[in-house]
Amino acid sequence: LVMKGSKLQLIDAADALQDFGLAEHQLRFTSTLAFDEEGPTTETADKIYQLVKSQLKDFPTHYSSDGSITISDSVLVQVSGDEESKSVLVSWSYQDEDVGSYLLQLLKSELVT
């Protein structure tokens, strides 16, 4: 709610920031989980995708052909590694803090033993 002249107006938060010349500050988090798991990385990515689909039903999820998974607006999961050990990068913006932190803890408990 902003005052323009003598009028009160309800405007979008992003527009309000722009009107006042304030730049939005992007905050992002990235954490990586490393663990031993045999098999191809695509198998680990498939497993994570199934887990995400069953545990985060409320959020749009996309599985790319390169094996990366995106959830909600900003959460990104990428699996890398070799036949014996894997690392899973989880990255999210503050906007998706609840989803990102939940997912990181979920993957930690499911994958890292």
Binding site: A13, A16, L17, L22, A23, E24, H25, Q26, L27, R28, F29, T30, S31, T32, Y94, E97, S101, L104, Q105
Partner: peptide
Amino acid sequence: ESDSTHIICEGEEAVRTKLRDTLLKCLHKL
């Protein structure tokens, strides 16, 4: 950077949340 911060935390979740909360106190929220 002037309009962004990226926290790359390979440590404990408690550390990450502490960094997050400390950072938010140094910025403004709408």
